[in-house]
């Protein structure tokens, strides 16, 4: 009996299911409701489209998961999306820069933003909430100053292909990136020293320090990663929209945080998992997609989205009690 039990826990698929029971329940319930309400939901086309829609939020949410596990928060991600995207497109179109160089520069700007936030937070112990809020303003400002508030159209074929291309003519490239990133981040968080240290710092900073965890290095790296992912998200987003727009990233930080929280990442740090965040991002994506298909106006969508997020978190909180009920049966 005992052996059987430990076997069950060791199976990664089962473990993902057990760990995220609450959010999976929400996901399934939502899917059932939308499927009953409209027959357009459960089609291959629509599912691919949902996956494409959630991919950008997922890139950002992966970095956010690490940051929240560390016990911090990053409010600058949306602004970095806008800044990197606008700069990359602008450099290609206005400055006639070589495509590859422009992309690298765009990404580097995001990386730098994350690195600076991380360094300040880690070296001076300033709350990340404040520093990343400042970074949010600065990055937004740079995007608007550079573009003069105007959106810039881009027609470069290769650039457009980054966000609109397909693998085997079926799977959109953004979804491919998403899957690759999820695999990498799951591995890093659960199987490497780096990931273990992230959990340790979030759980108890002082104990982690005395255990030989290089706190500053880990913190700065995680913020830098978050900047990198946001810049990448900006690149893919601009490519998909054929343009660089300075207003494009607003609200992305909140969606990313919502995905993490829905997925059970603890806002006090120390707890969380990549699989949870992915399910969280799916829930958020399906809310928008489902409501669109049913034909709910976008103003009402905001209200419904808020309510669903609140209910989902409540349900997830009750996870312990749910499994208790199950045992009783």
């Amino acid at each position: 009996m005992n052996q059987k039990k430990s076997k069950v826990i060791d199976n990664p698929v089962v473990s993902i299911f057990r760990g995220n029971m609450g959010i999976i329940a929400v996901l399934v319930i939502m899917c059932i409701i939308v499927t009953v309400a409209t027959d357009k939901f459960l089609t291959a086309n629509n599912i691919i489209s949902v996956l494409r829609q959630i991919s950008i939020n997922t890139y950002i949410a992966l970095g956010m998961t690490l940051i929240i596990i560390l016990g911090h928060i990053d409010l600058s991600v949306g602004a970095i999306v806008a800044m990197s995207g606008t700069l990359t497109v602008g450099l290609i179109v206005n400055q006639n820069m070589h495509l590859g160089v422009a992309i690298v520069l765009g990404i580097l700007v995001g990386v730098m933003a994350g690195f600076i936030s991380g360094s300040i937070v880690s070296n001076f112990g300033v709350p990340a909430f404040i520093i990343t809020m400042a970074m949010m303003n600065i990055a937004n400002g740079i995007a608007y100053v550079y573009s003069g508030g105007q959106s810039t159209r881009i027609t470069d074929e290769f650039f457009i292909a980054i966000g609109t291309g397909y693998l085997f003519n079926v799977i959109p490239l953004p979804v491919v990136y998403m899957v690759v990133l999820i695999v990498i981040f799951s591995f890093v968080l659960s199987k490497t020293k780096f990931g273990t240290y992230v959990y340790a710092i979030g759980g108890n900073r002082e104990a982690a320090k005395l255990s030989g965890v290089p706190i500053k290095f880990i913190e700065i790296t995680v913020f830098t990663l978050s900047g990198l992912l946001s810049a990448f998200a900006g690149l893919v987003l601009c490519s998909r929209m054929y343009s660089g727009q300075p207003s494009v990233g607003s609200g992305y930080e909140l969606d990313a945080i919502a995905a993490c929280v829905l997925g059970g990442t603890s806002m006090t740090g120390g707890k969380g998992r990549i699989s949870g965040t992915v399910f969280g991002a799916m829930v958020i994506g399906i809310i928008s997609n489902g409501l669109n298909l049913i034909g709910v106006s976008s103003y009402w969508q905001l209200i419904v989205k808020g309510l669903i997020i609140a209910c989902a978190v409540l349900l997830d909180n009750q996870k312990g009690k749910l499994s208790f009920l199950r045992k009783k049966k």
Partner: peptide, 9 residues
């Protein structure tokens, strides 16, 4: 509790 262990792990 403060320095030795990460209690939630």
């Amino acid at each position: 509790k403060k320095q030795g262990l990460i209690l939630c792990n």
